[in-house]
Amino acid sequence: MKQITVTVNGTVYELQVKSWATLLDMIRDDLGLTGTKEGCGLGECGACTVIMDGKTVNACLVLAPEADGKEIITIEGLSRGGQFHPVQEAFMEQGGIQCGFCTPGMILSTKALLDENPNPTDEEIRRDMAGNFCRCTGYTKIFESIKAAVRKGDT
């Protein structure tokens, strides 16, 4: 077991984790934050995307001990005080959600993309979202959601 200190959604946790547990295991099993999903466990679907020290990562490919000292944002950390984050609003309004399993990762990747590049081109949206797989929507409404989130950011 490894002792780690990790900040998740603004709360500092001191945890004992197995050395072979993943960050995803830690988030879901130790913290009970099941909004982060496991789709493939191999870094190919992006359903487990979380933001670690400002950058998106596949939580399934990060070991829990590697998260020691890191600051992590999961989907549960996005809305504050009952207010939806503009990206969450955009996905709801534009129909960027169907089954919802990819949605947490999709929203966090969008947030990270827009934090870095507040006004991405269509091409940049497609390229930077490639790590988030969605089988339901065919992506059209996801692109529309991201563009709507851009417009929300402008106002």
Binding site: G46, V57, N58, L61, S109, L113, R127, G131
Partner: peptide
């Protein structure tokens, strides 16, 4: 930039 995803390239 041609490799994998942003998430993978971040790590």
């Amino acid at each position: 930039s041609s490799m994998a995803s942003v998430q993978i390239r971040n790590r």
